[in-house]
């Protein structure tokens, strides 16, 4: 299938490996990504603190750009915050009277307009529902058998728009992870909040939230994420949190497409695990051993 691709700002720098592994995985699975030309920031959680209209106009600019290209395709978004903002702009413009008109008056400054109908899709939705576990099982190169993987969804992929999963008890990663041969870690924290952007301004609060997540994931081998903010929040303060809680809580954190890509045999150039901030030595050792064993195809 063909998708528009909206990477968002984080994927340009601090979450490069999410961008690289998403593109590589989609290519490997035979899907085409068309990056939205001249895309700009979705406004994240900042625009709404200044102006509600700006918080809709910023993402709407990108919906308008996709529409302007004349191609009809779903818009694939790997970042949960970008996904929410683009999805929310579409929702507000189609459902609130007057909003579409106001936003289009703002967009006219850029000679753009948006007439509705965009289908904004989170990467996890596309992986779980357009593709499913079938192609993973069929293309398996390195079985992750023996690994226990924690599915972590975070908030904004699930709420407030419960487009593709249960917003309280999400399950859409389960089949994908199971198809790699890994076992899915059973826990209750998959939809809990990591604090998102508050890590910058409310660090103590976020450390508590992340500590609860890492504590519950104890015993697993890695946590799989689908959001650059979740990923970074879980990665960056593990030492401090271990000290805070008085027990070792270090655990490897990987993006879901890195994990799936690895199991399908993507080389490091398409995974960039070397860019992750939290991979334990035992985890990378096990991946290295697994990469030498080739699974029988069509398992």
């Amino acid at each position: 299938m063909r998708y528009f691709y909206y990477p968002g700002c984080s994927l340009q720098h601090s979450a490069k490996e999410y961008d690289i592994s998403t593109r590589a995985l989609m290519r490997l699975l035979g899907h085409e990504l068309m990056e939205v030309d001249d895309w700009t920031c979705c406004g994240a959680s900042a625009a709404d603190t200044s102006s509600r209209l700006l918080s809709i106009a910023l993402p709407a600019r990108n919906l308008a750009l996709a529409q302007k290209s004349g191609v009809s395709a779903d818009i694939l978004v790997p970042c949960s915050s970008c996904y929410l903002n683009l999805r929310r702009a579409e929702d507000a413009m189609s459902r609130e009277s007057g909003t579409a008109d106001l936003v289009n008056r703002a967009l006219s400054e850029e000679s753009l307009s948006y007439s509705g109908g965009a289908r904004v899709r989170h990467l996890l939705d596309v992986l779980a529902n357009d593709m499913g576990a079938g192609p993973i099982a069929a293309g398996l190169r390195h079985s992750l058998s023996g690994l226990s993987v924690v599915p972590y969804y975070g908030c904004q992929a699930l709420r407030p728009f419960a487009d593709f999963d249960d917003p309280e008890r999400p399950r859409s990663m389960d089949a994908l992870i199971a198809a790699t041969g890994a076992s899915v870690f059973d826990w209750n924290m998959g939809a809990k909040c990591c604090g998102a952007g508050l890590m910058t301004t409310k660090k103590e609060l976020c450390l508590d939230l992340v500590a609860d997540i890492l504590d519950d994931a104890k015993g697993a081998d890695c946590i799989a994420t689908v959001c650059p903010m979740c990923q970074m929040n879980l990665e960056t303060s593990q030492k401090r949190i271990s000290k805070m809680r008085g027990r070792p809580l270090e655990i490897s954190i990987v993006y879901l497409p890195q994990l799936l890509g690895f199991s399908l045999g993507l080389p490091e150039a398409g995974l960039r695990l070397g860019l992750n901030l939290a991979l334990t030595r035992s985890f990378t050792g096990r991946l290295a051993a697994m990469s030498k064993q080739i699974a029988a195809p069509g398992r």
Binding site: S45, C155, Q156, R159, P160, A162, P167, E168, K192, C193, G195, A196, G197, L198, T201, K202, L205, C206, L209
Partner: peptide, 12 residues
């Protein structure tokens, strides 16, 4: 209100 992380649990 600055401590709201926009997790949308309350809205849900």
């Amino acid at each position: 209100f600055w401590l709201c992380s926009s997790c949308y649990y309350c809205t849900l």
